[in-house]
Amino acid sequence: MNAPLVKLSNISKCFNGNTVLSGVDLHLEPGKILTLIGPNGAGKTTLVKIVLGLVEPDEGHVTLHPELRIGYMPQKLHIDPTLPVTLQRFLKLAEPDPRLCLAAAKEVGIEHLIDLPLQSLSGGEMQRALLARAILRKPNFLVLDEPVQGVDVVGQEALYRLIGQLRDRLHCGVLMVSHDLHLVMSATDEVICLNQHICCHGHPDQVSNNPAFLELFGSKTAPYTHNHDHHHDLHGEVIDGVSTNSHSKECRHD
């Protein structure tokens, strides 16, 4: 599994004459977390759908690893209230064995909701349910479209931490979409800043200081730096000190 999981070269896509993506290159190694950020309409979801094979690009090539197993977490579920479906039943669509379903629910921290109707789950619980369904497929590649949407700030931190843990356990590559670099900073190895084309990419610290990024998001929203008691190397690995997940007082969340 040393070949890249996904390699996109020179991808372009138009919808009704509007260019959504042009000349996008991207590649993702196993075990790495790559985050796509960009404003609304930047083509993030379209790019994800091209990776998933749901949308055909107009130009360019998509090369997938031959043993790729994708776990996909879509942006939202709209389930009609007339459909009687519990969380367990939802998970069983991916994995018939109820014990494995329960284990997946446990791993994402929602095992106590297993018999509840899916429609009764809160935003954060629903995101975890989608994540559980994605990992049930034993993926080596997780694709997460706005995984923390509809989740409060504390919950977002926890969800990103969970995604990091899943990456470590499954040793899978992760491609995720976010429109907020602040929270995703510590959770990603690499960031691609997308606005129809790739504005800049690299380690989150580099991207956050890149003029193209600042121009796109404005200096007002320039990200705060996370005062951890350790440092990261270029791949996001901790190089000194021990991560304790404790935060300094400068952190604006708790």
Partner: peptide
């Protein structure tokens, strides 16, 4: 039954699966 149910819940997720 099963594929139709999966599609009813989320068509693109079903397709990826």
């Amino acid at each position: 039954w099963k594929p139709l149910l999966a599609m009813t819940i989320h068509e693109e997720l079903a397709k990826v699966e």
